[in-house]
């Protein structure tokens, strides 16, 4: 009762809330719920046979391993890119800053065929690696490259604003108390950036787990070898094995929700940790 009086003079609460909930339910909630309902039609034996089958287990291992490695490589290089963009001036800085978002803006299919061609044994980069016996396209290494490409912006864009808002007084205090530059970085600056870095890492990891378009071209899609989970689900769908696809999708959805929860907690921690970040 109290609340409805409090809404005061602005109109449209019922209309906009009603429309928001209706549209959200129709497009997102009901279709997602359908996945869980459909999977409950499977018996436990059928469900576990699908989600714990050897190709599925190999796909989880590859998906998690490649996504983790790609996010880790991005954490290192993304951090350096963010640092350079915030702290230094150099020719073409604005251009580089805008270009960082390319993996978001470029459709994944384009990224996929481009990377597959570049790293093919006769491609610009693959041809250069071939004499050393390094094969990238159609191997697990190729999947890692594609996942690194799509994950780069997450780290840069989460670390960059926090680094820009960092209070320089703390660095000055460290320097005046006798810390050298490396000590000031490692003991003062880095701990303040670590929540943002971890958040960026989780976002890149979560995105890589679900990635399909950029991987499908560079992976040879061989079960047990170069098949990540989204490719496995796609294979089941193409074979009209809807029940098996649904079971695998439920596993991935649960993992995604857990990651989303973790990212929310990290974000909350990050906001609390950095008082300079407007809460």
């Amino acid at each position: 009762m109290l609340r409805s009086q409090q809404r005061g003079v602005l109109p449209g609460f019922r209309l906009t809330l009603g429309y928001t909930l209706l549209y959200l339910s129709l497009i997102v909630i009901i279709p997602l719920a359908a996945t869980f309902v459909k999977s409950s039609e499977l018996s436990w034996a059928q469900f576990s046979q699908t989600v714990f089958s050897p190709p599925a287990l190999a796909a989880y291992r590859l998906s998690f391993g490649a996504s983790f490695l790609a996010a880790a490589v991005n954490a290192i290089f993304g951090f350096i890119v963010a640092w350079v963009l915030v702290r230094y001036d150099f020719f073409g800085k604005q251009f580089v800053d805008a270009l960082v978002d390319l993996p978001f803006a470029l459709p994944t299919a384009v990224a996929g065929i481009t990377l597959a061609t570049l790293y093919a044994p006769n491609g610009w980069l693959g041809g250069w690696l071939a004499p050393f016996g390094i094969k990238v396209s159609y191997t697990q290494l190729g999947i890692f490259i594609a996942l690194t490409f799509i994950g780069l912006p997450f780290i840069v864009r989460t670390v960059q604003p926090v680094l820009a808002d960092l209070d320089s007084e703390l660095e000055e205090a460290a320097a005046s108390l006798g810390a050298n530059r490396w000590q000031a970085f490692w003991r003062v600056i880095f701990p303040m950036l670590s929540p943002a870095l971890l958040t960026g890492f989780s976002l890149a990891f979560a995105r890589a787990l679900g990635e399909y378009g950029s991987v499908v071209f560079i992976s040879s899609n061989i079960p047990m070898k170069t098949q990540i989970v989204p490719l496995l689900i796609m294979g089941e769908l193409d074979g009209f094995h809807l029940a098996r696809a649904t079971a695998l999708a439920v596993v991935m959805l649960v993992i995604s929700f857990l990651l989303l929860l973790a990212i929310n907690l990290l974000q909350w921690w990050s906001n609390r940790y950095n008082a300079t970040n407007p809460a």
Binding site: L24, L32, T35, L209, L253
Partner: peptide, 24 residues
């Protein structure tokens, strides 16, 4: 909760995003 639900499509694999409509 509403804010989290609005964000949900971002954390879902594109393959699953298409699949949910096949299920319906």
């Amino acid at each position: 909760i509403l804010l989290t639900l609005i964000d949900l499509p971002f954390s879902i694999s594109p393959v699953i995003s298409g699949m949910i409509y096949v299920l319906i």
